[in-house]
Design a protein around this nucleic acid. Structure first.
Lengths: 193, 193
DNA sequence: ACAATTACATACCGAACGGTACGTAATTGT
DNA sequence: ACAATTACGTACCGTTCGGTATGTAATTGT
């Protein structure tokens, strides 16, 4: 150990995550990054590698955070159906409450980079698969407890809900009338009956 | 009228649409455009305005084409439910058949530009609203014909299907196992029972 | 024939891009 | 005290960006 870093790496990475989340990969410049991270370009390169490597590190951090957030919002809820409903309605509340709209970093990346970069195709797909497992386990819990019908197919339902979740997140970027997305959530929940 | 254009504007616009569709707004450079459109930069500027104006014109053209394509795939099908199923399965077939994956130009734009540019927020939203009407009319036709139950809410169902359509399109950019998306389609169609 | 107007290609503009060389300051072990 | 190593800021690299000025070729009406 010689001279220690003067900046906090976690903090800088967090700032980078915010910028990439907000603007996407292409639209984010290195000067956007230096100003928001509070460090200069050579520090970025020595600590995180080039722009794409930094982006990947930021996305991985986001995915971890996001997965545990989804998990905590779906698990340990008394009613599975109400838990899922509250999950979707929470997303809507977030997007329609004042603050600007950045959606989900992973979904943004799926749209922007996955078709042109296999690394991100895999990274984003794996995250969606992980979310699907969380939904599936939640639905299975509801079936076991008797809240949900035995005839349901938890895996297929979880896949549908993840697809719906992606659609809801992207759709809200165009800021449709709030009733539009609320209706669609209410309607898709009928699948759990 | 003096000297006539040497290039075909429709053809050039079509080429621009393909590039923007494939790469998005930010990742498309003017030299990408000139090489694919077969004309030089000053010709682009005199015929279509700047990069963003060209993008908007290309997107409007896409939306017209896309809306009529969706309309023709949903209307005049003997069975409404089978028509909708064939519609989604057709999307899956397209995406998993050889060719590279570009999704839907309007959805790509919703993800990339809508949050940062009100013009595209509106443009993309209006297209989704238009698609919703097509779905709604299709479902209403099924209810009238007796194929679908009277208790259904065609508007809410249409909204759900549009959200699902967006999710399906974006999800496929990460190239999940084909069964994933097929299951999710089969599962969401249960809403029509 | 010729003036007027438009289209086109070339060549260029300043600015911003992603990325790095380099000199200096700071910290360590010896 | 000093050699070794790392961090940092500045200043710079070549390239590409979006966009345009300019000169010339082509077409028209008169």
């Amino acid at each position: 150990m010689v001279r220690p870093r003067e900046f906090n790496e976690e903090q800088a990475l967090d700032a980078a995550m915010q910028v990439f989340w907000e603007k996407g990969y292409e639209a984010t410049s290195l000067s956007d990054l230096t100003s928001r991270m509070g460090i200069q370009k050579p520090s970025i390169y020595s600590a995180f590698g080039d722009k794409k490597a930094l982006f990947e590190t930021a996305l991985r951090k986001y995915n971890q955070f996001h997965a545990s957030s989804v998990r905590s919002r779906l698990q340990n809820k008394p009613s599975v159906k109400e838990g899922i409903r509250a999950f979707f309605e929470g997303l809507i509340d977030e997007e329609y409450g004042g603050q600007p709209n950045r959606g989900c970093f992973c979904i943004n990346t799926m749209a922007e980079l996955a078709p042109h970069d296999e690394k991100f195709e895999i990274l984003t797909r794996e995250h969606q698969m992980y979310l699907t497992v969380i939904f599936q386990e939640t639905i299975e819990r509801g079936v076991r407890s008797g809240e949900l019908a035995i005839g349901l197919n938890p895996k297929a339902l979880a896949q549908t809900l993840v697809v719906f979740l992606i659609g809801l997140t992207v759709m809200m970027k165009s800021r449709p009338d709030r009733l539009f997305v609320q209706n669609s959530v209410e309607s898709v929940l009928a699948l759990l009956n």
